[in-house]
Measured scan of single mutants.
Amino acid sequence: EVPFKVVAQFPYKSDYEDDLNFEKDQEIIVTSVEDAEWYFGEYQDSNGDVIEGIFPKSFVAVQG
């Protein structure tokens, strides 16, 4: 069931425009499960802007 919160276990950096880049310990709200390997989610950056994109499930852990 979406949405749910995950926390980055590792930093994720990608050159693909659709990917969500983040640092370790970033909290991310997952709004869609793309497939067995990928989530789609969002978070607010330090400027208060909402950043969204896809990212690999293996880089995050589900909270709770």
Rank of each mutant, 00 (worst) to 15 (best):
P56K: 03
V33L: 08
Y12M: 03
F10P: 00
D49Y: 12
K13N: 10
K13Y: 13
D15C: 15
F55T: 00
K5W: 11
K13P: 00
E52W: 11
F4T: 00
K5H: 07
F10Y: 12
E1I: 13
L20G: 00
P11Y: 06
V33M: 08
I29V: 11
T31D: 03
E27S: 06
A36V: 08
D18V: 11
K5F: 08
K24S: 06
A8V: 02
F55D: 02
G41C: 05
V50Y: 07
Q44E: 12
E23G: 07
I54F: 15
A61T: 14
T31S: 05
V6E: 01
F59C: 15
E34R: 15
I54R: 15
Q63L: 14
V60L: 02
Y43K: 00
D15I: 11
K57T: 07
Q44K: 13
K24I: 08
Y39P: 00
V62S: 08
E34L: 15
D35Y: 08
I28F: 03
T31E: 02
G64F: 10
V60R: 00
E23Y: 06
K13I: 10
V62D: 07
E34T: 13
I54W: 15
K5Y: 09
G41H: 02
E1G: 14
P56L: 04
F40R: 15
D35M: 08
I51E: 04
S14G: 08
V50D: 03
N47A: 08
I51C: 13
D45N: 12
I29S: 07
P56W: 06
Y12A: 02
D45Q: 08
V62Q: 10
L20V: 00
Q9H: 08
A61V: 14
F10C: 15
E17N: 09
I29K: 07
S46Y: 09
F40N: 04
V30G: 02
K57W: 06
P11V: 06
Y43D: 00
G41Q: 02
D45T: 12
D45E: 06
E52G: 09
G64I: 12
Y43E: 00
F40Q: 05
Y39K: 01
K57L: 06
V30R: 01
S46R: 11
F59G: 02
D35Q: 07
P11H: 07
Q63T: 12
P56I: 04
K24F: 05
I29P: 01
F10N: 06
F55Q: 00
S14Y: 02
E1Y: 11
P11T: 13
T31A: 02
G48P: 01
L20N: 00
F40D: 00
S58F: 08
W38D: 00
F40T: 05
F4A: 01
G53N: 03
F22A: 00
V50M: 13
W38K: 07
E34M: 15
Y12V: 03
D15Q: 12
N21M: 07
I29C: 15
E17T: 11
Y16G: 14
S32D: 06
D25M: 07
K57A: 12
E23H: 06
S14A: 04
I54K: 15
V6H: 00
V30Y: 03
N21W: 12
V6K: 01
V60N: 00
D25V: 03
T31Y: 07
E23N: 08
S58K: 12
D35K: 08
V7M: 07
E23R: 05
G53R: 02
K24H: 04
V2T: 10
E17M: 11
E42C: 15
P3Q: 04
V7H: 05
Q26T: 06
S46F: 09
D35A: 08
I54N: 10
N47T: 08
Q9K: 14
K5L: 11
S58D: 09
V7R: 10
Q44N: 08
Y12W: 06
D49M: 13
F59Y: 13
A36P: 12
D19P: 02
I29Q: 05
F4G: 00
E37A: 09
G41N: 01
A61S: 13
S14E: 01
V7Q: 04
A61I: 14
D18N: 14
D49V: 14
S46Q: 12
Q44M: 14
V7L: 06
Y16T: 11
S32A: 14
E17C: 15
P3L: 07
I29M: 12
E34K: 15
D18G: 15
Q63D: 09
D18R: 15
E42R: 14
A36F: 10
N21Y: 11
Q44R: 13
G53M: 03
G48Y: 03
Q26Y: 03
V7C: 09
F59Q: 05
V60T: 05
T31I: 09
V7A: 03
V62C: 11
V60Q: 02
G48R: 03
V33D: 07
E37M: 11
P56C: 07
V7D: 01
A36I: 09
G48D: 04
F59S: 07
I51R: 14
D35S: 14
D15R: 11
F22I: 01
E37P: 06
F10D: 03
V50Q: 07
Q44L: 14
Q9M: 15
E1H: 13
P56Y: 06
F55R: 00
E42F: 15
F55W: 02
S58N: 09
D45P: 02
K24W: 04
V6R: 00
Y12D: 01
E37S: 08
E1K: 12
V50W: 13
Q9N: 07
S46H: 12
F4Y: 04
N21E: 08
T31N: 05
A36T: 11
K13S: 09
I51L: 13
D15Y: 10
S32T: 05
D49A: 12
A8N: 00
F55N: 02
V6T: 04
A8L: 04
E27F: 06
K57Y: 06
N47Q: 08
F40K: 12
D18K: 15
E27H: 07
D15F: 10
D35E: 06
G53C: 05
D18Y: 14
G48K: 04
D35I: 07
Y12K: 00
Q44W: 07
A8I: 03
G64W: 10
D45K: 10
F22T: 01
E27G: 04
F10E: 07
D35N: 14
N47G: 07
E1F: 14
Y39G: 01
P3A: 04
A8D: 00
F40E: 01
P56E: 03
V7P: 01
V6W: 03
G53S: 02
D19K: 13
P11A: 14
S32P: 01
F22Q: 01
A61Q: 12
P56M: 04
E52K: 15
D18P: 09
S14W: 03
E42Y: 15
I28V: 04
W38F: 11
F55I: 02
N47K: 09
Y39Q: 01
S58I: 10
S58E: 08
G64D: 12
K24M: 08
S32E: 07
G41F: 06
D49G: 07
S14I: 04
P3W: 07
D18T: 14
V50R: 13
I51W: 14
F22V: 02
P56V: 04
F4H: 00
D18E: 13
D19R: 15
Q44P: 07
T31V: 07
G53D: 01
I28D: 00
F59I: 10
F40S: 04
V62L: 13
P56Q: 03
K5T: 12
E34G: 10
Q9L: 15
N47P: 02
Q26C: 05
V60M: 02
G48E: 03
E27W: 08
S46M: 11
L20Y: 02
G41L: 05
D25K: 04
I51D: 01
F59N: 05
N47S: 09
S46V: 12
P11R: 10
A36Y: 08
V62G: 08
G64A: 12
K5S: 08
G53K: 00
I28S: 00
I28K: 01
Y12C: 05
F55S: 02
V60A: 04
P3V: 05
E37T: 09
E52Y: 14
Q26P: 02
F22H: 01
S14M: 03
E42A: 10
Q9E: 05
D35W: 08
E37V: 10
E37L: 11
D15L: 11
N21S: 11
Y12G: 00
V2N: 04
K13C: 13
Y16C: 15
V6N: 00
E42G: 11
E42D: 03
V7T: 09
E1A: 12
I29F: 08
N21V: 07
E52C: 15
K5P: 04
F10V: 08
Y43W: 05
S46A: 13
E52F: 14
I54E: 04
V6S: 00
E34D: 08
A61N: 10
N21P: 07
V6G: 01
F4N: 03
N47H: 09
P11G: 09
I29G: 01
L20W: 03
G64R: 08
S58G: 07
I28R: 01
Q63F: 13
F22D: 01
D19H: 15
P56F: 05
D18S: 14
E42I: 09
I29D: 04
F40H: 10
K24L: 07
S32W: 10
E52D: 09
K57F: 09
